[in-house]
């Protein structure tokens, strides 16, 4: 033992990260650097692009909306994924495989195709509205609304919520619930006092991933949304590809990036755990 702790830490693990680091540097850091640079230099040196961004009300509206939609998508994902992941974690091996496939198979289909499927479902004469009419309800405007965008994005992002939740839930010892009951806790309380707190790390992990992915979502809001549900990525795309304004597009990207980091900084204390889940015997 003593020699173990005395020995300097092996540098091998660090070397193993080199290929990934190299790729990240090439595809992430360099383009990002260029974007940041251009946001301060294109068309003229200075902070003009940022001044423009915060001086243009529509930009701020869209930024706020981007956060709002991402928030709702994250919430919907948590609500839908939680029982699903729980079922996965307690299912027998065959049912579990089936449930995992149900999550993963749509994942293998391209996002564009899935979004187009949602267009068919959500449009005014689509399956959902026909169903509503058949049941005697009024039609609901879904396509080109924030509701439609939220529904579509929730479906696309759901696997990113389910997988981390499932990973955490699988590690929760269900016998703890038995123990809690023997100590006098009603089954409902055993859920809220024992199971839920133990599953929260999975909720936070999944929610962070979903929220951050949602902030930068492009295809789904574009195809399912209308003018009232434009998200920031769409604006960036317009600036860069339609207006060829790299500086402004870059500035918007940087604002989104900084906002995302800000969110992470706020969220990360919640994700730190004071305990290890595997407190038990073996």
């Amino acid at each position: 033992m003593a020699s173990d702790t005395a020995r300097p830490p092996w540098r091998g693990p660090f070397l193993l990260t080199l290929p990934a680091l190299a790729v990240l540097l090439l595809v992430m850091a360099v383009p990002l650097g260029v974007i940041v640079l251009r946001s301060f230099t294109d068309p003229a040196p200075g902070v003009g692009n940022y001044v423009w961004f915060f001086d243009t009300p529509v930009n701020l509206t869209v930024l706020a909306r981007t956060f709002k939609i991402s928030f709702w998508v994250t919430l919907c994902c948590v609500v839908v994924a939680y029982p699903y992941a729980f079922a996965m974690s307690v299912a027998g091996p065959r049912l579990r495989l089936l449930l995992i496939l149900c999550v993963l198979v749509p994942f293998w289909v391209s996002g564009v195709v899935r979004t187009l499927a949602w267009v068919i479902l959500l449009q005014d004469s689509g399956v959902i509205n026909k169903g509503l009419v058949w049941l005697g309800f009024d039609k609901v405007k879904l396509i080109r609304t924030q509701l439609g965008v939220t529904i579509g994005m929730t479906q696309v992002l759901l696997p990113f919520m389910i997988m981390p939740l499932y990973a955490v839930m699988r590690g929760i010892d269900l016998r703890l619930l038995q123990a809690a009951r023997s100590l006098g806790a009603h089954p409902v309380k055993t859920f809220f006092q024992i199971y839920l707190p133990l599953s929260l790390p999975g909720v936070f992990a999944g929610a962070t991933i979903v929220f951050i992915l949602a902030l930068g979502f492009y295809i789904t809001p574009l195809l399912l949304g209308g003018p009232q549900s434009t998200m920031l990525s769409t604006l960036i795309q317009q600036q860069v590809l339609s207006l060829l304004n790299w500086g402004r597009g870059g500035a918007m990207g940087v604002v989104l990036l900084v906002a995302t980091f800000g969110f992470l900084a706020v969220a990360s204390p919640f994700m730190r755990q004071k305990y290890k889940i595997s407190g038990g015997g073996r």
Partner: peptide, 20 residues
């Protein structure tokens, strides 16, 4: 009587302490 109303103490082989 449901388990939580029996007022019986139980000690498990795997301890079953609440890790959080």
């Amino acid at each position: 009587v449901p388990a939580h109303k029996r007022n019986i103490g139980v000690v498990f082989q795997h301890y079953a302490l609440f890790p959080h």
